[in-house]
Design a protein around this nucleic acid. Structure first.
Length: 364
DNA sequence: CCTCCACCGGAAAGCCGGGTCA
DNA sequence: TGACCCGGCTTTCCGGTGGAGG
């Protein structure tokens, strides 16, 4: 590429490009001025937290909802307004935000709270009680925290329903107006992003990702309009990335399980049940000199794979013939093969044909 | 209506590699 | 150094259970 060509690329980015005005508006951690279709939740959260303004104790509150339904952003939004209001009235109020899902355990939640108060604490090694003491010390003059942070029961709750296609459209529209240069974004493309994300549990994060990726695709191919075909391509890309990411991070036994399901599916064209999968799994383990896990554990792993979307596993009853999970592969088998071929440990198992599979082979 | 299959999935406890603290 | 803690992964134990077949 010539220097002029390179120069052009840089210049284009400096000027914001021909598609984007500000792509940061499409990031999911961007805080917009308003949060459409979350008025109800904002009000609820606000009224629960309001007593903090007068130093009264506030109730615990639980927010339920799938990813991309606005839990994080609504919480941050309300905390921000609360702090502003306190400042306006010259009242001392501090808030701290800890994402418990990311923290994962009691210990880590309290450890994060300590850190948010500027107290460094070891990431492990202390008793939870000891940690809580340190947290109280860090709070010092402030009121002592309700020990119920330790229990997982709140007194209040707010539910975040998945966004509908129309609601997602409103969210996207608002951000797109500022994120894109005028006339760049096709309305059909916007609707498609909303519809696709609505089909996928009404996930606003997904909707924003689709829109951003679609625009990047258009930009890269030097097109001046973001259209439906770009969104479809973005959908492919986002999904593909998700799958390869998921597959590449799977631990050994989950990989062997996935291969087991795949081989059963190849041998016969119907879905398999836990018992069959476990049988094949054991044989593959033997072939690879790996100590097999128990069926109880395998059952749990299958559920995890189902949640990740790599498998489809649902409980069914065959009446007289018992109750079990029906299991199907949730991704294309060539994705699995491509990913696992990189892995020394399981590569050999991809081609291995266990007898327990042959037994299930359907005769033509 | 009852039985009984082939599992399900909760609870508890163990193991292990990481750590703290006195 | 030894007692103790955490988190994750796993095993063990075991009380369910939807519904076809009797």
């Amino acid at each position: 590429m010539s220097h002029q060509g390179l120069d052009l690329i840089f210049e284009r980015v400096l000027s914001g490009g021909e598609v984007f005005r500000d792509r940061n508006l499409l990031r999911h951690d961007y805080m917009p001025a308003t949060l459409p279709h979350r008025e109800e939740q904002i009000k609820r959260l606000g009224s629960v937290l309001a007593p903090a303004l007068t130093k009264d104790r506030v109730s615990n509150l639980f927010a339920y909802g799938k990813t991309g339904t606005g839990k994080t952003i609504v919480t941050k939004f309300v905390l921000d307004r609360l702090k502003r209001k306190a400042r306006e009235h010259g009242r001392a109020l501090d808030t701290s935000y800890v994402n418990c899902r990311l923290s994962g355990t009691n210990y880590r939640v309290i450890a994060d709270l300590c850190r948010s108060l500027g107290r460094e604490v070891p990431f492990t090694g202390l008793a939870v009680g000891e940690l809580l003491d340190r947290f109280r010390n860090a709070l010092q003059s402030r009121d002592f925290l309700d020990p119920r942070v330790l229990s997982s029961l709140g007194e209040e709750e707010v539910v975040f329903k998945p966004y509908s296609s129309d609601e997602l459209y409103d969210i996207l529209k608002e951000r797109a107006q500022l994120a894109f240069r005028s006339g760049v974004l096709d309305q059909g493309a916007l609707h498609l992003c909303a519809a696709l994300a609505a089909g996928e549990h009404g996930d606003a994060r997904r909707a924003l990702d689709l829109l951003r990726v679609a625009a990047e695709i258009a930009e890269r191919s030097r097109e001046l309009k973001v259209e439906e075909n770009h969104v479809r391509e973005a959908q492919q890309k986002v999904e593909h990335d998700r799958v390869t990411e998921a597959l590449s991070s799977l631990p050994l036994h989950s990989r062997i399980l996935l291969i087991s399901v795949m081989q059963l599916e190849n041998a016969r064209k119907e879905s398999s049940v836990t018992g069959d999968v476990y049988e094949v799994y054991r044989e593959l383990c033997a072939a690879g000199s790996v100590e097999p896990l128990t069926q109880r554990r395998v059952s749990g792993l299958l559920n995890e794979l189902d949640i990740m979307g790599v498998l489809n596993a649902r409980v069914v009853s065959f009446g007289r013939y018992g109750r079990t999970k029906k299991i199907r592969l949730g991704v294309e088998s060539r994705s699995v093969t491509a990913s696992f071929n990189q892995d020394e440990m399981v590569r050999g198992l991809l081609g291995y044909a266990p007898r327990s599979v042959l037994k299930h082979q359907t005769n033509l």
